[in-house]
Structures are given as C-alpha cells and as structure tokens.
Amino acid sequence: MQPLPCIIGLDADELADIKQRYGGPMVCHELLPQMMVRDRQLFVQPASGARLLPISRMVFHGIFADDHDFITGLAIWAGECLPNAAAMMDCRLKLPCLARALRFASFADPPRGYSSPGLEYIASGPSVAKWGNWHCGENKERFDDSMVTENASIVEPFVSGEAIRVVVIGDSAWQIRLEGDDWLKSIHHDTASLIDLDSALVDDTRAVARGFGLEIAANDYIVDTNGVPHLLEVNHIPNVTRFPETWEGYSTFVLDWLTADCG
C-alpha cells in the first residue's frame, strides 16, 4: 500500500503548496478531522467521504481550543508524527509547558509565582498574570501592586526590554523582533521583523526543544535594558507563515521529512 501522509492545521493555500510539491496522495485538513487509533494503526477521515483512511505519517501544525485529546490520541498511536506527538502533548497546556521549560532553559529568571482562583496576589512590583491554554498572546494581564486572580495563574515580574522570538526548525533558525502598540508584543504586528541571530538565544531555544523532544519550536524572550534575556513562553506550534523565509524553511523541512526513507 502506498504511504498516505496527513497534514492538519495549515491554511488552504499552505496545504495546497505542500501537496503540490509533494506530488502524491495526501490527506489535508484545515480543522481537526475524525480520527481513530486501532491495532497500532492511525485512521483519519478523508476530505470527502465517510470511510476512515489508514495514515502513514502525520504533520500537525495548528492550535485548536479542543485539540489536547486529539494530540493525546496521536501520542497513543506513537507513529511517525511531526512534531513529536508526546512532546506536543507535554507542551499544549500553557502553564505546565512553561513550568517544564524552565527546567531546560538557561534564561529561566526571574522566579515565577502562582495563584489559585479568587486569591489576591500581592506583588513586589509591576507583574504579569498568565492563565489558560491559548498560546496566541491571550489571557495575560499586567498589574502594578496586587490583583485578584479569577483563574489559576502563573505570575511573573514585568520586565521592560526588547521582545524576541527565536524559531528553530531542524538545523535552521530565525530570530524575530516582536512589536506592538503597547506592552503586548506579537509576531503579527506590521513592524515585526527578522533580525540577526543571537547564538546564546538560539542555543537556549534548542536546549528547550531537545528537553521536550521537539523538532520545531519557538521561544519568546524579553531582553532587558541590561541585555539579559528572560524566557517568557515556549511555542510548540510557532507561526511559520509570517515571513517567506520561515515558510520556505518549514515547508522544505516537512517535505524532506515526508519523503525520507520512501525510496
């Protein structure tokens, strides 16, 4: 049987690009399809039709509100998945992901705090509370002295400086200056830009990625006014379409992975 790969989570244009360059049968979904794991075989709903199809390799590149169980299913399958499914499962919940990442990072300071829902957190200075499991800049609030946390939250000191993202895809890396109109910075801002690599940040991002077992990852840092980096967040599904350079690097890496050892 000819191997049948599946890609989930990219937009239609990106899926069409990879499918055309791949040149063979492929199951593609922008959203989460129906999936089953049985007798160590992965089956996925096709784009049309009801019969589940056996899948040889899975590329997962999306974040959905209800995808943790789906990723867990891929980890149960334990087949060829990019990124590694067990690593994605460990990263998908944002607060546990950060707690794990701090064990691998060289730039883990400053120390974080935690607050249960309904408690007043009294800070020693400007701080940021983070909660929830959405990895797209949501569920963060800055406060100065104290805050009643409505949700279980990690709390960290607010650090002024330059917001940086380092993306690693296989052996390649890119560094991005994140921008914004207030204290929240984003890769999606019009003035976000690729900048020269900082080898220490690249090494740290690779160390965190290795710690999780991720082939693809992006770390967000704030580099303070003294030039000291501080890890803020790990992205197991980083944006790869904002810049042509990262899309070319990602799509080539995916295609090389899909065709490896396929004759």
Rank of each mutant, 00 (worst) to 15 (best):
K130P: 05
L42C: 08
R112C: 11
V234I: 15
L93N: 07
E30P: 00
R40G: 01
P33Y: 11
M147P: 02
C6F: 03
I18P: 09
P54L: 00
G180S: 10
P244I: 05
V168K: 05
T191K: 10
N133L: 02
Y250C: 02
F212Q: 01
I195R: 12
H188C: 14
F43G: 06
V223R: 11
N139H: 11
P126L: 07
G113F: 10
R165L: 09
E215N: 09
S115C: 13
G170N: 12
A105G: 01
V208C: 06
W257A: 07
G263P: 01
Q20E: 14
D196W: 01
S153N: 08
C6V: 12
M35L: 15
V223E: 03
R103K: 08
N226Y: 05
H29N: 03
V208W: 03
Q45S: 10
F243Y: 09
A16D: 09
A129K: 04
N151A: 12
W183L: 00
A78K: 15
G213H: 06
C28Q: 02
G227E: 11
T241N: 11
P244W: 07
P46E: 05
D220T: 03
A78Q: 15
M36N: 08
E80H: 04
A129V: 03
F212T: 01
W174A: 12
T149I: 00
D190N: 14
L52H: 08
V155E: 00
D66T: 10
A200H: 10
M35E: 02
G161H: 01
I216K: 03
M35K: 06
T72F: 07
T259Y: 02
H135W: 03
Y22C: 01
L184D: 04
F104Q: 08
L82I: 13
H61Q: 12
V167M: 10
M58S: 06
D17H: 09
G24K: 13
I76Q: 13
I55K: 01
S124P: 08
G62Q: 01
F60W: 07
Y22W: 07
F107Q: 07
R210D: 14
E156G: 04
D220W: 03
T225N: 13
N133T: 03
E141P: 01
F158M: 02
L197D: 01
I122N: 07
H236G: 00
N239T: 05
V228N: 09
D69V: 13
A78T: 06
W257L: 09
L119V: 14
A217V: 10
S115R: 04
P110E: 12
I76V: 15
E141F: 04
Q45A: 12
M147F: 15
H135N: 10
E138V: 03
I76Y: 14
K130F: 00
V148F: 15
C262L: 10
A108D: 11
G227K: 13
Y250A: 05
A207I: 04
P229F: 02
G62V: 02
W174L: 13
T149Q: 05
L214D: 00
F212R: 04
R51Y: 06
E215L: 11
A16I: 02
L102K: 04
F64S: 08
C136Y: 11
W134P: 01
A47W: 01
R51A: 09
G73P: 06
C262R: 07
P117R: 03
C97M: 11
T241K: 06
I169Y: 07
Y221C: 09
F243T: 06
S115E: 07
L53Q: 11
V202S: 08
R210N: 10
F104C: 03
R21L: 14
F212K: 00
Y221H: 06
A123L: 10
